[in-house]
Amino acid sequence: MKIAFYGSSLLSSYWNGAATYYRGLLRALAARGYDITFYEPDVYDRQKNRDIDPPDWCKVVVYDGTLDALKAVTAQAREADVVVKASGVGFEDDALLAHILAAARPGALKIFWDVDAPATLAELKANPDHPLRKALSRLDLVLTYGGGDPVVEAYRGIGARDCIPIYNALDPETHHPVTRDERFAADLAFLGNRLPDREARVEAFFLEPAASLPGQRFLLGGAGWQDKPMSPNVAYIGHVSTRDHNAFNVTPKAVLNISRESMAQNGFSPATRVFEAAGAAACLITDAWVGLDLFLKEGDEVLVARDGKDVAALLGELDGARARRIGENARARVLREHTYAHRAAQVDRILQHKPANLAREVVP
């Protein structure tokens, strides 16, 4: 079965938090026999900041950030059995969706794959005439990388035929324990780009605890923080390539996950960081969100902070032995239940069964 997947970038994680999700899931689908072509625009300097070379399990087509190039690559959708438009591609998303739907052949399964469902739904709620809202009746399915029942019900409520979450997971070939790297030595490390609905939470859960613990070392990675005021015990290292994520996770005593505001409010939205850290057997401290217990058990496999004071308290009482035990427990759990092989099996069942269901729907 051929899949044409139009997304932000498979080759670069630069200003592109969905990269590792795409890589893990599509590689696992390719292992199940799917023939995948990924189309990504050359925008935001992503091609200058590639983390990987084009893989052998997926054809990658990079196109110029122009409407002519967009039209050329969307015309190729007619060759696919499954056509996927992801959210947040970053160049003319509305036009991209329109051209994909126009090009897809009759009988092809047409999917919108939302990698930031709470934010997308907020945008659709604010704009009843949004092109995506109008396109839902022409799409066969909405898949999301999280959100649980609230997202499913919201999408169905505005006209989606169906909505199914396909959660983030672990690719154990990519994220795993490695040797410590002293570049990333710290008591607590956080990795995330500076985004409007994340910044206040980074202040509360990371920068304020750092200021309150001058005797401990904090490490901040990610793009956009260079002019952010921070205490002297915070080292800012800028963008961290995915090739360094394992070392970034295993070297500090603990790593921190901070959900974006919309995802924290919605719940059921584990970030890729959660599974990357667990895969490396890192001790993870995460902000609290509904649904966490579906993935990791508080206290045994993850530490949970309700605010910045909790972060400081957890870090203050955490010793190396307990940190290692929590990390090892988390790794065992995600290997058992939450790998991309598990997610690909779920997607495979959907893709294999959905076309038959749709065919029955159109028979008089």
Rank of each mutant, 00 (worst) to 15 (best):
N193D: 14
I158Y: 01
H342D: 15
D51W: 00
H239R: 12
G222L: 14
P196D: 11
Y145W: 02
I100M: 13
D171Q: 12
R331P: 03
D197Q: 06
L220Y: 02
P270E: 06
E328P: 00
Y63D: 10
R243M: 00
R23A: 14
S241I: 00
D45P: 00
L97G: 15
N266G: 00
G291E: 08
P252I: 01
C283I: 08
R201M: 10
S269C: 15
D244K: 11
L96A: 10
R201F: 10
V290G: 09
K253M: 14
A313K: 10
K59Q: 14
I326N: 02
E361V: 03
A264Q: 15
P131D: 12
V334I: 03
V115N: 06
F295Y: 14
H353T: 12
D53S: 15
G146H: 01
L351C: 07
R201C: 00
N16C: 15
I350R: 08
P252F: 01
A210R: 12
G33T: 05
A126I: 03
A312K: 04
R331M: 05
H99N: 13
V234M: 09
Y39L: 03
C58N: 02
H175M: 07
A323N: 01
L124G: 12
S9C: 01
D94Y: 06
P252T: 03
T37L: 06
T272I: 13
A282L: 01
G192R: 05
V152R: 10
V304A: 02
E298P: 06
L213N: 01
L207Y: 11
P177M: 03
D116R: 10
S231R: 08
P55E: 05
G192L: 04
R133T: 15
G320K: 11
A86W: 01
D53N: 12
G90L: 09
R156M: 04
H239A: 06
V61H: 05
L213M: 14
T120L: 09
L25A: 04
K253D: 03
D42F: 02
G267N: 02
V347E: 08
L139V: 03
P150G: 13
A31V: 00
F248T: 06
G221A: 14
D140H: 14
L315R: 11
D287Q: 11
V234L: 06
A86T: 11
S9W: 05
L256T: 10
A344S: 12
A102T: 10
A19E: 04
I3W: 14
V73W: 02
V178T: 11
A69D: 08
L136Y: 02
